[in-house]
Design a binder for these strands. Structure first.
Lengths: 265, 265
DNA sequence: TCCGAACACTTTAGGCCGTATAGAGTTCAG
DNA sequence: CTGAACTCTATACGGCCTAAAGTGTTCGGA
């Protein structure tokens, strides 16, 4: 389901993204447009938020707006461009300013948490390819904000760019786990507990030599030792949150080490 | 294109994964099977390796084997199960043993590099959901190996589990960038240079106030300063490799800090 | 020896998807 | 008032996964 950025006419899609698409509507012949790009994008976002990227189809968006799928093509060149617009639009939810007086470490932590929540609010963003970025105003703004925070570290520019990538990879990866867990539960109607229970029963049958075959793994399962802090939140999500906190600390500590001992660059 | 794990009969798919599927073929009526699960899985892998997950269809696999799509359903319950089998199968390529005498840091670095190359050899693995793991013998074995290496750090079990997750998230994220860049170039026939050139020209037109709007970003672009070491490797891939190296160092340094100053756990 | 059940495989079909194309109906400039 | 421009619908094509039905092969047992 990974969605790749639109590859059509750059002029058209960039104009749409930057809100400079045909500013003189209304002075032309033909019926007035009953919808708007904004409305379509908002509708598409709410569908993707609720039911995931797989449920996002031109037909679904059109139907929710009382039109056919083809009606949308008057507003947007195609589905890829629509996803680009959705992606850029939601980025605007991320805060633009962070308190820097408590040092970069506190600000980066806050930023990472905001991004974590952002991705969980819009899990489909994790399925938008990062290879050829959307290049919209909000994505640039979000990157600018991250950059401004991390510039406080004093790292040289190339190192800065890579450090941001590392943080982004981590936050996206950690959020993706939770997103996929939730998606799997919602899509199949089977909870993680049920799923795991069914699987592990079969596993014992099919791999009776598990313990001797995977000793370290068996050891770790035995150690276990995770305390459920909140019974209402599924185990896997609590574990993911712990992983997120741990990982963030590890990376921030690593950045501090890099600041103390500048590398070969 | 994210592919979720098969949700069908656990018994059937686990038997397939662990190679315990109906061991008494040949003593039953009906024509002999002309294909085998292994052959199908291998063919599917080679299609996905070459043309990506999007090109993997039951029709494509069947056609390459001289059958229709439906013929495959005698061997495999469905496409999801086929992907599970593919995923588990390729994991076997990862080395099982690492030299631990030079310390855990060297071994983790080697492991991370092996995983990086693994993911770039099979980019489609990055589109297989991690939420409900495949639970096949090779995936367990690969995890066992990672675990054995990182156990050398002496971290307690819960911390160990999270640290592995952090590393996995990072390696997957970093590899994904390269994979998507290559995929985009292959699928569209447009190189990154061409793509970027077309985009940046339009960007200037559509956002003439770019420099004042995104000052930090503009500053970083000005600093630039990345030396192309090898002209035959695209810029973005070289940058990604640098990011990978940097990120790995950062994370390993962070782990060392955690070892010196055990956390609240 | 021959039948019927089990099986491999093909054909067809149904319900999704994105979108090309053609046409119907509305609105404006001249 | 006309014709062009425009919005939106209907239809259709080619793709996807896979359910269901049909064809022909192969075997165990009578």
């Amino acid at each position: 389901m990974t969605v790749y950025a639109a590859q059509g006419d750059p002029k058209r899609s960039m104009s749409l993204l930057w809100g400079r698409d045909a500013p003189d509507r209304g002075r032309r012949p033909g019926p007035k447009q009953g919808l708007s790009v904004d409305l379509i994008v908002e509708t598409a976002i709410s569908i993707a938020d609720a039911d995931g990227m797989a449920a996002l189809s031109m037909r679904a968006v059109g139907e929710r707006l009382g039109r056919t799928a083809m009606a949308l093509y008057t507003y947007v060149p195609g589905k890829d461009e629509l996803v680009d617009l959705m992606y850029d639009r939601v980025q605007a939810e991320l805060p633009a300013e962070y308190e820097l007086r408590d040092g970069w470490r506190a600000a980066v932590t806050a930023r990472a948490h905001d991004m974590w929540e952002f991705h969980l609010r819009h899990p489909w963003t994790l399925q938008v390819s990062q290879a050829r970025p959307v290049l919209g105003p909000c994505e640039y703004a979000a990157f600018e904000t991250s950059l401004r925070i991390l510039r406080e570290t004093g790292l040289p520019a190339p190192m800065l760019r890579r450090t941001i990538s590392v943080l982004y990879h981590f936050v996206r990866g950690a959020a993706q786990t939770v997103a996929e867990v939730r998606q799997a539960a919602a899509a199949t109607g089977v909870s993680d507990e049920e799923w795991w229970y069914a699987r592990s029963a079969v596993l014992e049958e099919v791999a009776p030599d598990f313990a001797s075959r995977y000793p370290t793994l068996t050891w770790m399962e035995g150690e276990g030792g995770f305390q459920m802090e909140d019974e209402t939140v599924p185990y896997l999500e609590q574990e993911a949150l712990e992983t997120f906190a741990t990982g963030l600390t590890v990376i921030l500590d690593g950045i501090e080490t890099a600041l103390r001992e500048p590398g070969p660059a």
